[in-house]
Design a binder for these strands. Structure first.
Lengths: 224, 224
DNA sequence: TATTGCGACTTGATATATCAAGATTCATGA
DNA sequence: TCATGAATCTTGATATATCAAGTCGCAATA
């Protein structure tokens, strides 16, 4: 009996411009392309080994995400600084708390059970300091709330407001106190969802994202 | 003595892709390009009298704004429907209420005086049914709060979440009850700002945008 | 010595050409 | 008659060429 074939790597389904966008976004957020740097389309295209067309489209998207600004006939300026990162964290807090509010109104018992399982795992990983596992669980936690809200567009908007990469998350969660704070906050969010308390879920999520966002901004820009 | 020259029309400072973006966005929101329609890049470019390059860039932006979806080798699908419009209204409510919260924390006495003046004008225009004036004042009101918050990026994000055009606004504010509700809500927002009540400003703004957003979705999709 | 104008150069914006990935249609074989 | 494979066509994706709008540097003039 034939086994089903495995699905293709999702990266194979992406075009050049998505790869270019991710590569540049990552380089900006990680500080490899620092604030104020002036990029040149032809040079960046040559470095990446692509033509200017997918690069332009990627740059346009980065511009909408506030990470760069086109200065016609001068170059592309990297604008990702502490102020921009703060505003992006606020945008994310705003959107995530709206999502949490809707999730509190709409969540199923199954989804709550799933979240309980995730937070049990978080407790263990927090105590043992298993940072990679904690990152996975954190993503699963937020993904589950996104799913419960049923808001695909809000989720897509959120993706553009991320201001940290995996290295930054690992760094931040390497701190024991930070792990403790994050756990308490996730548990508060869960409690509000269990109570189907819209105001409570919104507040708990906003407080969580605003606080952890501040941490990310601080570590990203005070180690530059 | 020479008088200073007048500044140029800001539209002259925009490139083709911005004009194309605005034209398409307006056509989608007004229903001229209805939900589900399949657009073809070469045809649309020819209709607009431009090449496919600025059109592609405009389409990419519309895709990020959730109004269309590219189906490679098939066409560009218009995806702006009631569900998408609802999510955009929620996104706007989320962002506007974060802006209002920050404005409540940061607003100056001068800005409050300005808002009082605007709401005085709103009272008059509401009573007299001066819809165009009311639209102007509404924009000034929200612009003033945006300015008070100091968040340029959040303001730029907001622009992409608008789901109505001038015709829709005129239609909605043509209703006397709607004008009354909007006035009450604006006054509630002002009261919270005057009290520098962050939670109150956030709630009042969110309630305002969610409610008026529902109205816009209803009138936009139930008259199709 | 400083200012202004002009020419050359560089860069993003846009136009056009080409590629390639499906989609559609038609023909053939079972 | 239906299913499958091949050929053709259409479309978005990408590459490349060209345009034009500044920018910069240099020379001339006051």
């Amino acid at each position: 009996m034939q086994r089903p074939l495995e699905t293709l790597d999702p990266n194979l389904l992406k075009g050049l411009r998505e790869h270019v966008h991710e590569r540049l976004r990552q380089a900006i957020i990680a500080g490899q392309l620092p604030t104020g740097m002036l990029l040149n389309e032809r040079k960046v295209a040559a470095e990446l080994g692509v033509s200017t067309t997918p690069l332009k489209e990627a740059l346009r998207r980065l511009e909408l995400e506030g990470l760069v600004r086109t200065e016609p006939r001068r170059g592309i300026r990297v604008t990702f600084d502490a102020g921009q990162a703060e505003e992006m964290a606020l945008a994310r807090a705003a959107l995530e708390s709206m999502v949490a509010r809707l999730a509190a109104a709409r969540i199923t018992d199954e989804a709550l059970d799933n979240l309980r399982g995730i937070t049990e795992g978080m407790k263990k990983a927090t105590q043992s300091g298993a940072v990679s596992r904690l990152i996975e669980l954190n993503e699963a936690f937020h993904d589950a709330i996104h799913a419960a809200s049923g808001c695909h567009y809000l989720k897509r908007l959120l993706v553009g407001q991320l201001i940290y990469d995996k290295a930054a998350r690992r760094f931040l969660l390497g701190d024991r106190d930070e792990r403790g704070r994050a756990l308490v906050e996730h548990l508060a969010i869960l409690a509000a969802l269990e109570a189907r308390d819209e105001d409570g879920a919104e507040r708990a999520m906003r407080d969580h994202i605003v606080r952890s966002g501040k941490q990310h901004v601080q570590t990203a820009f005070e180690r530059r």
